[in-house]
Amino acid sequence: MTESSLTRIPELLRQQQQALLTDWLDRQMSSSTLRPDLIREQDLREQSRRFLSLLAEAVAHGLGDHIQGDGYRAVSEFLGELSRSRANQGFSPTETATFVFSFKETLFNHLRDAWQNDGEGLADDIWRASTLIDRLGLHTVEVYQKGREAIIQRQQQEMMELSTPVVELWGGIVALPLIGTLDSARTQVVMENLLERIVESNASIAIIDITGVPTVDTLVAQHLLKTVAAARLMGAECIISGIRPQIAQTIVHLGVDLNEVLTKATLASAFQIALKRLGGAILTPDSQRN
């Protein structure tokens, strides 16, 4: 590409905006990726019009090598907004990016008319236009993806918080029913939650119920032992309950040493022993009769 050849893109965008828009909209309407179920024609028209006018303003400042420059801020912000809203509306990334890419054909056709028989100038300008639109399109995809990632992250966070509730069973006894696989990140949250609640509720006994933990491997056992040790350091005793038969077998086969920790098969028996430690007991009609 020779630097000498002047570009006609800014001029074209400024002078023939209306013609470009009509042409482009025709193309978008007849395109197979049009989603009339997700977006109204009127909105699409408005979005296309705004994109064109912002793009015309941007290229008037020069066809930069990157779209992060000041001139392109408005257009890239607009595309970001568009991408986010389309992601929420349920467009696929391809459909979202096609909005920008579909402009290529229109622009190229108009460029061909503008340059007439000057092949070299046309080739240069097509290259420039292509690069520019590619960048804008990729920007759309990037924002789309970031939006998705943010959603995933938020959901992960929510799941993390949801899955580690610490409940107070009795004055001085808290229980932590664990559900799902324990990994390092979750254990950290679980451990912190439990310890905070021990302080808040002044609990001297904490029951960790692992009925909902599908598998216990050495790492999970290690995490559990750490939590128990930390609670002990703070002055609370931990009881691990809800150990299913298969898990008991696995723990022994793995050679994990749980001797230091009080373990119970069910939450009920753990609760009973906890009450006993605090000097209480549950009286049923049966036990009173005896």
């Binding site: 905070e196 930390a230 609670a231």
Partner: peptide, 8 residues
Amino acid sequence: GMRPAVAI
């Protein structure tokens, strides 16, 4: 009175 952070 050990704090949770210290215990961890």
